Simulated scan of single mutants.
Amino acid sequence: MTVLSTRTVEKPWGRDRLPAPFVAPEGTRIGEIWFEPPETLDQLLVKYIFTSEKLSIQNHPSDAQTEAKGQGRQGKEECWYVIDAEPGAALGIGFSEDVDAETMRAAAEDGSIEDMLVWHAVRAGDFFYIPANTVHAIGAGVSLIEVQQNSDITYRLYDYGRPRELHLDEGIAVATGTPHDPHLRFHVPARGTQRLVEGPFFVLDRLDGQPDAELRAQYTGPLLVIPREGSVTVDGEEVAPGGCALAHGIDAVRFADDGLCLVTRPC
Rank of each mutant, 00 (worst) to 15 (best):
L4K: 03
S5W: 04
R7N: 13
K11V: 02
R17Q: 14
R17W: 14
P21A: 02
T28R: 13
R29S: 02
W34C: 01
P38S: 12
Q43W: 09
N59F: 03
P61Q: 02
E77R: 11
E77T: 13
Y81G: 06
I83E: 06
P87K: 01
G88D: 05
A89V: 08
A90Q: 09
I93N: 03
E97M: 07
R105K: 14
R105Y: 11
A107L: 12
D110H: 05
E114S: 08
L117M: 09
V118T: 13
V118H: 07
G125C: 08
F128D: 13
G139S: 13
I153E: 14
R156N: 04
Y158R: 07
L166Q: 07
L166N: 09
D169C: 05
I172Q: 05
L184Y: 12
R185P: 01
R191D: 14
G192W: 09
Q194D: 12
G199H: 13
D205E: 15
Q210H: 10
P211D: 05
E214V: 11
Q218K: 12
P227A: 09
S231G: 13
S231R: 11
V232H: 04
V232Y: 11
D235L: 15
P241G: 09
H248M: 05
A252R: 14
R254N: 14
G259C: 08
C261F: 05
